[in-house]
Design a protein around this nucleic acid. Structure first.
Lengths: 152, 152
DNA sequence: ACCGATTCAGTTGTGCACGACTTAATCGCA
DNA sequence: TGCGATTAAGTCGTGCACAACTGAATCGGT
């Protein structure tokens, strides 16, 4: 084993290219950048797209439930949802039985956008250029990593 | 193969949890969140930490070279470097032979911070809870993915 | 029924991240 | 040599992301 690989294996390296965290950070930003022109046609930013994905999957959820699904704070979601509402894609209403809670619902325009978004995931999938097995492997390991990192 | 797995394999799914992009986004943010308290002790944010990693590896580089290493625009780096300079960790000086270029150099305080940062990567590595092989696999696949996504 | 603790959404302040643009310096070729 | 094209860093505007906090509503035990 050469010295560099040895240091990296010990996880004590301070070399930028050895860091998994940097590979993660760079990969995430590069994927988001790849999405940008596609989402721009839909009038969405990337986090807004994630919110729409969640709503297309389950409509009429509270801000709290959205935050739980996306792992985002209300301080991030509140202004984002306000922009989606201004864009006419969602509406927000206080729950009558619990006025602390705000339910987010798709408008017809928001629901219709789903069809126009159908081609987006495969376009990105193609650009990533991973095999189905590699895609599954990364996804699995990232989920394990995230679960571990959030714990304790 | 059940219907859900089939849809996912076709990469046409709009389910949030099927999306590699979301796994990537969530993993990156969770890792950064894990770094936060450690870096706070060093007086650094996560992107600032990446810049320091790059400088500890090679000192006296231009803003352009830093941007190339970190894949960040000058519009992101310029204010960030200004804050590092205000914190006394780096200094910036225009190159005399090409006054368009600004060279970033570690101050003694910035160089000294390296020792205090030595324990950070292993602490994060432990929290990730991946085996050495899994770590290497993810890192490799993320680099392939990033290279593919940035191309064409 | 009361009231302290909790929950929920939202506001504020700081720091990225990036597109579009500006300014200044350098390059390259006619 | 002149001058249009290119390059480098920085500014500005928008939109996250998160910590710290606010205010209103609800809960829960007495």
């Amino acid at each position: 084993m050469d010295p560099d690989a040895h240091r990296a294996a010990e996880q004590g390296s301070l070399l930028l290219q050895d860091q998994l965290c940097f590979a993660l950070y760079a990969a995430s930003r590069s994927v988001i950048a790849r999405y940008r022109p596609l989402l721009e046609e839909l009038g969405l930013t990337y986090p807004q797209y994630l919110v729409m994905l969640a709503l297309w999957e389950q409509d009429a959820v509270s801000v709290r439930e959205l935050g739980s699904a996306l792992q985002l704070e209300s301080s991030t979601l509140s202004p984002l949802l306000k922009r989606l509402e201004a864009g006419g894609l969602i509406e927000r209403r206080r729950r009558t039985d619990d006025e602390r809670s705000v339910v987010v619902r798709l408008t017809p325009a928001g629901a219709d956008l789903r069809d126009r978004a159908r081609t987006v995931p495969s376009a990105i999938g193609d650009a990533m250029g991973l095999t189905v097995e590699q895609d599954a492997t990364v996804k699995h390991l990232l989920r394990v990593l995230t679960a571990n990192v959030i714990r304790d």
